[in-house]
């Protein structure tokens, strides 16, 4: 699939692993990425002022929440 005139074919399992962003105010950005986007901090490196964010949230469906609330 896709136009094919390539001497080298990249492996079909290729994925984007991460993006590394430079931010003007790390604490302000962390608030945004945690509170709005809902990422969790995997680790923080205080020497380089760097934070590593991942998703790791388990979900309960609304119906299940309703059931739990009424047990």
């Amino acid at each position: 699939m896709g136009i094919d005139d390539r001497p080298f074919v990249i492996d079909s399992s290729m994925k984007i692993n991460h993006v590394h962003l430079k931010v003007s105010n790390l604490s302000e950005s962390l608030n945004f990425y945690k509170l709005i986007l809902g990422f969790k901090i995997l680790k923080e490196d205080v020497h380089t002022n760097t934070a590593f964010l991942v998703p790791d949230t388990h979900y309960i469906d609304k119906d299940e929440t309703f059931n739990h609330q009424h047990l």
Partner: peptide, 18 residues
């Protein structure tokens, strides 16, 4: 499809493209 309440980025979330 309004079956879930937002609780943060779910497991299985990836960077799909840039």
């Amino acid at each position: 499809h309004n079956t879930k309440t937002w609780n943060g980025m779910p497991l299985g979330t990836t960077i799909g493209h840039v």
